[in-house]
Design a protein around this nucleic acid. Structure first.
Lengths: 315, 315
DNA sequence: ATAAATTATTGACTTTAGCAACTATTGCGG
DNA sequence: CCGCAATAGTTGCTAAAGTCAATAATTTAT
């Protein structure tokens, strides 16, 4: 070793790290007690958690990520499937693999778990001052960086069904963002409000749905699929929105993709949507997913001259 | 909540903390795999670890500290006792309690576990630069402070039998410290060297022992109990030393205490020791433990005029 | 085309853990 | 000093968590 002094430092650091590990082992133990109060055994909860953060995973990946025995995991997944929380689809490209994902019920279970855990953490944090919270988070970042947390390769956001509060958020953010980005006036916000009001009033869970994208605990995107008011067997995609700070992560595409998947699943024969030609990012996504422009029509709304467009996708 | 902005921050912090918890859960999982390669199951290892850091604990305290179920712990302790790693003595003051401590074999097992874990952590740390190591440790301190790690009320040091390297350390530190603090010359260091050489050459594990005090992974104290060269049934306490940076923690008293306990246990009828009147701290400890001054004699040694003293304790 | 590797499942087990009931003490209030 | 609540620890029973090896179905590599 280089010198007596630095050797001493080194040994002391080792002990400091070990002390921290003991401390945090204990700390995590306490956290887990909270999860244990949920109807899910801890390991199951962890599996659900991972599933919620992946579009689709294979069992092997999951086992890897959670450090579980494949056999054990297989059984856990079996149980979750039986209870209707997880579905498994054979992979198209590899007959050995199965792609796993949460069902709606699974999503719901996750939402509850997630909320509990979040509240727990929130309660802990709120015992600290603003300044202390900042230091804590910063210290945690430092540790993760130094211990080589490989950038989590799960998607950094989350899709979920709507919850209380989400409708207000949708109206609010549509209003703010379209005003900011396109200068649209409050007529647009009113339109959005009307749409979501109707969605809630006439909600048919079997054939309609809202997806909210969440990132770091905050809403960052939305999309709705509703029955077309006049044309039976046709679904209408509405209110696609992604917050500026969350753009570039593929959230928009993912939202539309989910929408279409759901539309197929519940038996629509066609999905239609109305947008405006100035919304380039959205149009691009619709194109990618396979929608075709079927009609274009000038109109004056929201304080501007616009070109409204109707797009359709055969299922 | 105060404002939209700080609410946003708060939610993001919650997620950051949760992310860290997941990260560290996995990280600790990996650490534990290492321990799992040892002959001890993780929980047993933790129990041994705690026992090594306490003079004597009760099962309840231990369960509390480790967050274990008392029943479960009881069984673990039972197993450790059967394998001769732990002994249990009924408490004098409370008939319900049992005071637990590691046997020699237990100490040895601990030493191995501890070394493995330390090496593991050392290997991890040495992948980082000096600067990075410092940040890491600092971040860990921050977290412990903020999450209210109550100051560990276990003793922050550790007594253990001697290992390779310890004898050299004893000679080296006696030489350095007595020179620094009392100006003694290298004759003293030579004397110490001779004593430890004889200790090793004529070591009788049944009736002789060396204790090394360790703190944060470093040696900080020593004491020896050996057979008196002339008087059968008498033990001689020698080479009591505590590093300046570790004084005030009761390490000296603890070392002498262990010595006396051992002397009683292996059947000596008396313990004697030789010291000098200028070593105030040491004399104070001997007095406290019950030693009596039986002889005082001037001598010139180590480059100084000194007053040598003989102290004795009837067992 | 065959061997080797990968993905997932199953059966048979062990270990780990938690709860509740029970015994032996102790401390306390009347 | 008696009775009773509280504490320390043990034991039986049960569930959860995890392991290991064998197997089947594919895919990939040689």
């Amino acid at each position: 070793m280089s010198s007596a002094v630095s050797e001493t430092d080194f040994v002391q650091r080792i002990e400091a790290v070990r002390r921290f590990n003991r401390f945090y082992t204990r700390h995590i133990g306490v956290l887990h007690e909270v999860l244990l109060r949920s109807p899910f055994p801890l390991t199951e909860a962890r599996v659900i958690y991972e599933l919620a953060h992946h579009e689709q995973v294979t069992a092997t990946e999951l086992a890897e990520e959670l450090g579980l025995d494949p056999g054990y995991l297989s059984r856990i997944l079996g149980g979750l499937q039986q209870r209707g929380l997880v579905v498994k689809r054979p992979s198209a490209s590899d007959g050995r693999r199965n792609l796993l994902s949460l069902t709606d019920a699974g999503q719901e279970s996750f939402a509850k778990l997630n909320a509990d855990s979040r509240n727990e953490t929130g309660a802990m944090l709120s015992g600290l001052t603003e300044e202390e919270q900042r230091s804590l988070v910063e210290a945690m970042h430092t540790i993760q960086r130094l211990l080589g947390a490989q950038p989590e390769h799960r998607v950094p956001y989350l899709l979920r069904p709507h919850q209380p509060g989400d409708m207000g958020w949708v109206v609010y953010r549509h209003g703010v963002l379209y005003a900011q980005e396109y200068g649209w006036d409050e007529q647009f916000e009113a339109l959005v409000a009307e749409i979501v009001a109707n969605f809630i009033k006439q909600f048919d869970p079997k054939r309609e749905r809202c997806w909210i994208a969440e990132k770091d605990g905050q809403n960052v995107g939305s999309v709705f699929l509703v029955k077309h008011p006049e044309r039976a067997g046709v679904g209408k995609l509405r209110l696609l929105l992604v917050e500026p700070q969350a753009r570039g992560l593929g959230i928009g595409a993912r939202l539309v993709h989910e929408c279409v998947r759901f539309a197929r699943q519940v038996g629509y024969r066609k999905v239609t949507l109305w947008t405006n030609d100035c919304l380039h990012a959205a149009r691009h996504i619709y194109e990618q997913v396979g929608f075709a422009l079927v009609q274009s029509k000038r109109h004056h709304s929201f304080g501007h001259d616009l070109v409204g467009e109707t797009w359709e996708l055969e299922l």
